[in-house]
């Protein structure tokens, strides 16, 4: 399985998720919608596994490959949280995000070589990247929920259940974020001799984590929730810069993490 076959799988997943989103609010078709949504995830996972076998190395290296995982995990996380909290919009929003990332990979596929430089050949490689991708999916979903809550508050509606959902997603997402960061430290120590060297990517990872800590601690004393929600949105923007935007920051061109 190579990148040229991706289009068939991507279209399969996109069709499944689109239909699932259309049907999710129709009581009669709820079950079919669920099955379609899971089928979309399964199709994508099949591609990832076959692609991995063909590459003979884990597909975690290029931005294109991490986008693949992001589509997979955001929909998976969306489904699990939907099952727990029963908000149908979770299916629709995570579908949209998953589809957007698949389309970006179709329009702008990056060159996927099989080689892996020595520094990346490490036991930490897979768990480090996986933890980050899961965390990004959780925090992405939390922000979507945050925006919905903000709109509800503007319309003078309260939703304690949704507040709890957001906090829960942030706690779990932050847990994974911290794991990703710490595994990065341990890996860096083995590969480069120091666990932290304030490389631009590391600086951004640091400030993304502290931004989420601001959110978490701001919720302890229940300040105006609108302020907390805006902190959540800003944190996600910082997170996206860390993940995707570093390549475009002039001061970060010397980073060893630009790829």
């Amino acid at each position: 399985m190579t990148w040229t076959n991706f289009i068939f799988f991507a279209i399969g997943s996109i069709i499944c998720w689109t239909l699932a989103s259309i049907l999710i609010y129709k009581q009669k078709y709820k079950k079919i919608s669920n099955i379609l949504f899971l089928l979309g995830i399964a199709i994508l996972l099949t591609f990832i596994i076959l692609f991995w076998q063909n590459l003979k190395r884990p597909p975690f290296r290029t931005i294109g490959e991490t986008r693949l995982w992001y589509s997979f995990f955001i929909t998976l996380v969306g489904y699990i949280t939907y099952k727990i909290w029963k908000y149908p919009w979770l299916i629709i929003y995570t579908s949209i995000v998953g589809i957007v990332f698949l389309i970006i990979n179709l329009v702008k596929p990056e060159i996927h070589s099989q080689t892996l430089m020595p520094a990346l050949q490490s036991l930490w490689f897979i768990p480090h990247v996986t933890a980050y991708i899961i965390s990004y999916s959780m925090l992405g979903a939390a922000t979507i929920a945050g925006i919905i809550l903000l709109i509800k508050i503007e319309n003078k509606k309260q939703d304690i259940k949704l507040e709890n959902l957001i906090d829960n997603l942030v706690y779990i997402g932050f847990g994974f974020l911290a794991l990703g960061l710490l595994m990065g430290c341990l890996w860096a120590k083995e590969a480069w001799g120091h666990y932290w060297s304030w490389d631009p990517k590391e600086t951004w990872a640091f400030l993304t984590s502290t931004a989420y800590l601001v959110y978490i601690h701001s919720r302890l004393h229940k300040i105006n929730i609108k302020i907390s929600l805006w902190i959540l949105i800003i944190s996600l923007i910082l997170l996206c810069i860390t993940w995707l935007g570093i390549d475009y920051i002039p001061s970060a061109q010397s980073s060893i993490h630009v790829y």
Partner: peptide
């Protein structure tokens, strides 16, 4: 207090942000 914790977290985030956009 949580108030000081949050303020310090905001401060360190902003300082790191300056660091993230300035060539070190």
């Amino acid at each position: 207090s949580v108030h000081l914790s949050v303020s310090l977290l905001i401060a360190i985030t902003l300082l790191a942000l300056i660091m993230g956009i300035t060539r070190q």
